[in-house]
Design a protein around this nucleic acid. Sequence first.
DNA 1: TGCTGTTCTTGATGCACGTCAAGGTTTTAT
DNA 2: ATAAAACCTTGACGTGCATCAAGAACAGCA
Lengths: 233, 233
Amino acid sequence: MADMKKHHTECGQESQKLCISIVPIFNHLDPYEMQEIVKESRSISHKKGYTIYQAGDKSDGLYIVHKGRVKIYRLSDNGKEQLVRILEPGDFTGELSLFNESVHDAYAEALESVELCVMGRDNFQQFLLKYPAIALKVLSEFSTRLAKTEKQAASIAMESTETRVAIYLADLVEEQKRSDVTLPMSRKDLASYLGTTPETISRKLTDFENAGWIMQNEQREIIILDLDALLLA
Amino acid sequence: MADMKKHHTECGQESQKLCISIVPIFNHLDPYEMQEIVKESRSISHKKGYTIYQAGDKSDGLYIVHKGRVKIYRLSDNGKEQLVRILEPGDFTGELSLFNESVHDAYAEALESVELCVMGRDNFQQFLLKYPAIALKVLSEFSTRLAKTEKQAASIAMESTETRVAIYLADLVEEQKRSDVTLPMSRKDLASYLGTTPETISRKLTDFENAGWIMQNEQREIIILDLDALLLA
DNA sequence: TGCTGTTCTTGATGCACGTCAAGGTTTTAT
DNA sequence: ATAAAACCTTGACGTGCATCAAGAACAGCA
């Protein structure tokens, strides 16, 4: 806690209001309701590399990302890291323990300078009871994530590493809506996300390049030349 | 639809009321509220092997299992099956598409004779708005499933097949609270759930038996002799 | 600007596990 | 009760990918 003081900053009401209002699950509320939430939430900043929470920590509430990106990952017994997901502004975390367990089983780390809104467990539940429409929004967000996670699990379980990399690139194209995509993370993290190693990522990418399906520009810039060929590999 | 007629049976109000009241997310409602839900839901029976919905089907609502078990699985491009989860009485499915997409990307199949409650998408949303406490219950269920799925994905990505089988057995012990556990599914399905093959499951189990950590009784009966040794393998 | 610590690439090696195959056992259906 | 179908086990074999290692490219920072 003494250590935290050095790394984060509490903000005034003004900044908090901004913080809440930018977040999709809250941004349709009217000014009065917004105000009510602002009173119950805090705004916090951390700089790059800061560990926001770690496995074993008591879950103290809901974290909503306002600015910057946050990496959620797990560690296996043998110390290997598995990237669960990356939070962009508007995303939130801490929900898992909001309703059931009260202990985190993953780690959250600031990938860059971040600003977060934090709301206590009980406060959040009260809000959901009072504003059922928000509960539906959260439910909707959960169902999206659940679908994505189930798909990801199935993919790791059934497809070859090569196919997974190809599918990932295809997803990026769809997400970024252009054929020259930017990897949102390092190859190391990508490997961890796809359940493989950095070496294999490297090799598969050069394989794809040799096959004429992609072109690797600067580090994280990749141009997809033949999406179809890629996908039926 | 003509085909469905042969396999399912609509039930009267009496049976429906039972159906709803047995389900955890609804069973704390008072009689009047219960009645209101009953009016909006249907009760349906299917016999073993019936495909309740399949990938590509439009999602027509929420399915709550009342009796029997239902297998949810996916098919990869190359036709391999991945078991996502098994629904026990009280569990529900169809939620993913309740809020976002309207098309299933998985298959639901009756493992035995089943009875289901079915509620339309809109009706369900109205209920959640009217009874926020139910929304919280559903949210809680979602968060549990999300946690479980993320853990499962991480496990498949990071641990060896052997470790996964060991962890699965350990989870069973915890779940069933006894050291002679019963596998809830065939080895074929277990393999699909753990992202491996029936052959490998067979081999690992005999390995464990040879090491003196477990004993295999009748088909699905396994006695765990040394849980600790199993887990640090 | 250069220094230092990451990240990326490429090669060589080994093994865990998937695949194919064949025989035995249990379940289902008639 | 018996046949048919599905499931389980064990063996032999091949390979995709992790691992170890070492050099190259890059990024952060004085």
